[in-house]
Structures are given as structure tokens and as C-alpha cells.
Amino acid sequence: MLNWRTGAILLLVVALIALPQLPFGEKDLLTLLISLFILAALSSSWNILGGFVGHINLGHGAFFGIGSLVTRSLWLDQGWHILAALAVGGVVAAIVALIVGAPALRLRGTYFAIGTLALAEAMRLTVGNVLPRVSRLPGPELRVYDIEPRYYLALVVLALIVGVSVWLSRSRIGLGMMAVREDEEAARSLGVNVFLHSMLAFVLSAFFAGLAGGAFAFFHVGYYPNYTFGPVWTFDAVIVTYVGGVGTVAGPLLGAIFFVLIRDVLAANLVNIHLIIFGILFIAIVLLLPGGFVELLKRRGQRLIPAGASTEH
């Protein structure tokens, strides 16, 4: 079972790496995949705090925005190498999380959610006021725009966040985080430092959201700096994570695939009404499949595999 799965994943990774060199790896497919990778990375980063620790961060877009803003200005305006700019973007997002985290993580449940939402809104408004000009690549640079490095950068960012998620889901620290999610008091009595675990997850989550933002900044040809701070990024990440399966590594990935494909397929064929259909479909999934796609797969799996094979609750 494990070997079969590892083999399939390896095959997929190789296929994704080779894709731009293949004849059908055309620009529209790469563009679609880049948005998919960025959304999956953003959702996975949300999942670290929202899924593993269980704190609903509704201001996640702010960290995506910080990452894109810092990366873009270092890379485009200061002429840094994109990898250096990207790293700094992630680090700045993490530092902001560290500063904000201390007061924010004192808030409980819903108040944390609303507080982060307001924080992101405040940042979006500030950035809109301070940097009202659209950030776009100059004409000469656009004419030599190459999609491949963008593709690989987004892929690497996604691979990083998935790798860290896998590690977290198996490590002591990750287990501590999940203990906080299940029952804070119980976790505390077991000697888990609730604040430290929450903070670590918050900072990691922000760091990777920043990287995803940086990948977006590298990819996108022209947008307003406050666009990446918008609530839509947070909402998309939350939907994707829940539809896929919150608190699991595969969930955000499956969710992102569903989200991007459905949107794309419906948008192409049913101009106008696709948003209604998407909304209904989405609600149906939330109501009928609370554990997301991952649970569906697991249920199927349990029928095939003898009981006890699944270790998760």
C-alpha cells in the first residue's frame, strides 16, 4: 500500500517537473497550474494554524500580501535575485506574525478570527493609501517574460510547504499542536506549552503564506499592491482547506485542485452562472461531507482496507 502510494506520488512529482518540456505543456496549462500551486500553497500554510492548532485566522491574506509586497519591491524595484527577495518576503511575513501573535493569540476562538480579519483589512487599507499605484512589469521586460521559472518557483514553494506539513504531522511538535486543537486544557496538563505551539504554528503559517505571496509577485504581470491583501485570498484558502479536509496534509491539495478545476471548467462553459453553481456545490460539500474529500477517500479506503489501518482519529 505504502509503496504503491509513494510510487504514485513520485511519478506525479516527476511529471510535474518534466511538464514544461513536454509538447502539451503549453502556456495556458502552466498558467493554470501556477494558480493551482499558489492556491494550494496558501491553503496549506493556512492549514498549519487553522488545521493543526485549530485557530481560525481570517486575516491570512495579510501575510500573503506582505510576502508579495516585499518580494515584488526587492525583486522588481531593487533588482534583487528572485530567490533572495522571496526568502526575505517570507521572513518579513513571519516577523510580522511574531509581533502580532503575542496580543492576537490571547484572543479566543471567534475573537481571534474577527481580530485577524480586521487586522488584514487595516493593512489592506493602509497599503492602498500608501501605495496606490499599480505595480506592473515594464513593457520591455514583458516581451521577454518566460513562464517556466515562474512555474518552477511556485512548484518549489508548494513542495516546501507540503514537506513541512508532512514533517509536522509526524513530529512531536506537530502532535503537540494537534493536542492543543483537541483540548487546550488537557494539552496543558500533559506539559504542552500551548502558547509556544500556537505561536510557532502562526509564524510558520505566515512564513509560507509570505512565500506563496512572493511566488504570486514573481508570476503576475500587473496588479495593485493592496490586491494581494484582500479578503478573497483568505476566503479562498479557507474554503479550499475545508473542502479538501482540514488538518490533513492532502486536504488543501485536493481542495485546491477541485477549486481551480471546477472554477475553470464551469467558467469556460457556463459563463455567468458558474458562481451560483459553485456556491451550491460548495455548501453541499460542507453539509454532506464535513471532513472534506480526504474523509471521503478514507471512508472508501476503510471499506477496502481492514479496520485499524487508519491511524488518524
Binding site: 479557507v238 474554503i239 456556491g279 460548495f282 460542507v286
Partner: peptide
């Protein structure tokens, strides 16, 4: 989540 779907 439901509220968001409803919004759409």
C-alpha cells in the same frame, strides 16, 4: 463556510 457559499 456556509455563509461564504451563500455570499457567492
Amino acid at each position: 463556510l456556509i455563509g461564504f457559499g451563500l455570499t457567492l
